[in-house]
Simulated scan of single mutants.
Amino acid sequence: MATGSKTRGGVFHAISVDLRRLHETWMELVFPRQRTSTHSVLGKWTPNTTTGWIGYRLWAALGVLIVALLYPLALFGFMARFYARKADGTATRIGILGVVAVSVLIWGALTVFAHFRFSRTGFLAVGAAGVVATISAALAVVFSRIGGRKTTVFLGYPFGMTAVFLPPVVAALYSPTLAQTIFPQSESLAIWLLDNVLYVGGINEFLRSRYSLSGLGYVGMWFGIAVPLGWILGGLVTLADLIRPK
């Protein structure tokens, strides 16, 4: 019982620290010296005028709402950061050539297996998927190594997502069996996104009038999904780093 109480206390303490840091970071967007001021000689900055106090309190109240919305996302960011660190640690140990070699080894073995067990279209499907996955994984590692956090978030994570999402779509272009599963599901997802997400500013109508969801259109669609998903994932990991630095 005592151990359980200590565990709950530790969790609640960690959450309270996270919330305070996140709110202080929000406050520091407008007001100076708000975060990590407990160990500062100067202490936390506070306004010295009535107007300043009003603005300070209003900004703080707005911050409570923002924190309530962001913290659940930050929790997901903690989990994503854990797996991202593991993947990054593995990539660091074996290097870019190692990542390429592992990908070529895995996909090469699958391609050889497909050559003996599947039709020519299935063989081409697995081979094409391997090329996409290998190039995307290599680019993800490259961009995570250069340019700092911004390059990692805006380029590294999207290519990482591309390595996950595009291979089965590319394979479906060659395999009728995969196409029967992936393309109808992709079409349903595309309709939902157009009707519920991309309706702002008539983007859905523009896409429907200019593009057809067939052939390479599916590849373009999933690349278009992988990129913002990579940005979102990278943003959540960045938010987790902001709240709980490494």
Rank of each mutant, 00 (worst) to 15 (best):
M1G: 14
T3S: 08
G4H: 13
T7D: 10
G9A: 07
V11G: 03
V11D: 08
L19P: 00
R21I: 12
T25E: 15
W26R: 00
E28D: 15
L29P: 02
Q34H: 07
R35L: 13
S37K: 03
T38N: 09
G43F: 04
K44D: 05
P47S: 02
P47Q: 06
G63W: 05
L69W: 08
P72Y: 01
P72K: 01
A74S: 07
L75H: 00
F78R: 10
A80Q: 08
R85F: 10
A87C: 01
T90A: 15
G98Y: 02
V100C: 11
A101D: 09
A101V: 07
A109W: 05
T111D: 05
S119P: 04
A128I: 03
A129Y: 01
A129D: 00
G130F: 13
I135M: 13
L139A: 12
V142A: 14
S144W: 03
I146L: 14
G148N: 11
G148H: 09
G148Y: 09
F159P: 04
M161H: 00
M161E: 04
M161I: 00
T162L: 15
L166G: 03
P168K: 04
A171R: 02
P176A: 06
P176Q: 03
T177W: 03
Q185L: 13
S186W: 08
L189H: 01
L194G: 13
D195N: 11
V200Y: 14
G201M: 10
I203R: 08
L213D: 05
G220A: 10
V227L: 15
P228Y: 06
T238I: 05
I243Q: 07
R244A: 12
